[in-house]
Write a protein that binds this DNA or RNA. Structure first.
Length: 289
DNA sequence: CACGTCACCTGCGTGC
DNA sequence: TGCACGCAGGTGACGT
């Protein structure tokens, strides 16, 4: 499910309900959810830790604890929600962190991420149907995040940086944008959307991108991600409720439907085993390799 | 270094 | 109805 806007949305919604709470107990319901450390150490180390901050880096949800960083990657089907500890765990709940009761009442959240009744005996629940998601409890977050590329909203990410970086490689641009060590946070949806807005063909070779195209792409990436966040991310099927961005896709999942710019039918191709959607009229390419 | 393939998992929609 | 198949928002380990 989650790319940068979905994780950002989850972090923003959960933050007020988590700050200052103490983690009383961890229920590890699927051991391999823990990338590090093993369940025994995880349980003993996380017990009694206070949640000092809730943030995001790339597609990682991060909780800064008293002595550790807790990192959660939702991969394809993960979700985080706050539930009443009294409610029976669901089939796909993989990790449950029981929280200390609130000292002060957190603001009411009308969305379905947080059930009002849960606020008194709250648990943070990691639900993950496909079991791809992973959790790390480490002393230094850089152990996990060290190789990530820049954040799209950081100062480092400029049109000039993007142009230079694209020219330092000789790769198809779509798989390169999906590479988290190149740029952090884009996934299949937002990459297709950004390339369409920038009018760049997904198979274009990175070092052929012009300065103007790099500027357009830089703009498109920021604007598309911003719109995704503004619409609380994209929701699909039964996974991740509450987002609206799926109603505003220009190309993603729209094969055979008209391009919003020119009306040409959107095409779907495979690029590096990933479904790729683009407008063959707006996103032209003079050569492929 | 760039790219293809497979693996990790479950569940849903489609077509026979 | 049953069943096989293809598909899904991500990443990492291989081999060429």
């Amino acid at each position: 499910m989650p790319e940068l806007p979905e994780v950002e949305t989850i972090a923003r919604k959960l933050k007020p309900h988590l700050l200052g709470k103490m983690i009383m107990e961890a229920d590890v319901r699927w051991a391999r959810t823990l990338a590090f450390p093993n369940p025994r150490k995880f349980k003993s180390q996380i017990k009694g830790q206070e949640i000092k901050d809730v943030t995001r880096r790339a597609k990682f949800f991060i909780m800064q604890l008293s002595d550790y960083s807790l990192l959660i990657h939702l991969r394809m089907s993960g979700d985080l929600l706050i539930k009443d500890s009294k409610i029976k765990p669901e089939k796909h709940d993989r990790l449950i962190l029981k929280l200390q009761s609130a000292k002060s009442s957190a603001p009411e959240d009308p969305s379905n991420l947080v059930h009002a009744a849960a606020l008194r005996r709250a648990s943070l629940v990691f639900n993950d149907t496909r079991k791809f998601g992973r959790v790390w409890l480490v002393s230094d977050a850089a152990e996990v995040l060290g190789r990530l590329g820049p954040e799209p909203f950081s100062k480092k990410f400029t049109p000039k940086w993007l142009h230079t970086a694209l020219h330092s490689k000789h790769r198809q641009i779509k798989p390169l944008l999906l590479d988290q060590t190149f740029l952090a946070g884009l996934g299949n949806i937002y990459t297709d959307e950004s390339l369409n807005v920038a009018k760049v063909h997904p198979l274009m070779i990175s070092d052929a991108v012009t300065v103007k195209q790099a500027e357009a792409l830089h703009n498109a990436i920021r604007n598309v991600l911003k719109e995704g966040i503004r619409r609380n991310g994209a929701s699909f099927d039964w996974v991740y409720r509450g987002g609206e961005f799926q109603n505003y896709f220009r190309v993603y999942d729209r094969a055979g439907k008209p391009c919003p710019t020119c009306g040409t039918n959107i095409e779907r191709i495979l690029v590096g085993q990933r479904s790729t959607h683009f407008c063959p009229n707006c996103q032209t390419i003079s050569f492929v390799s």
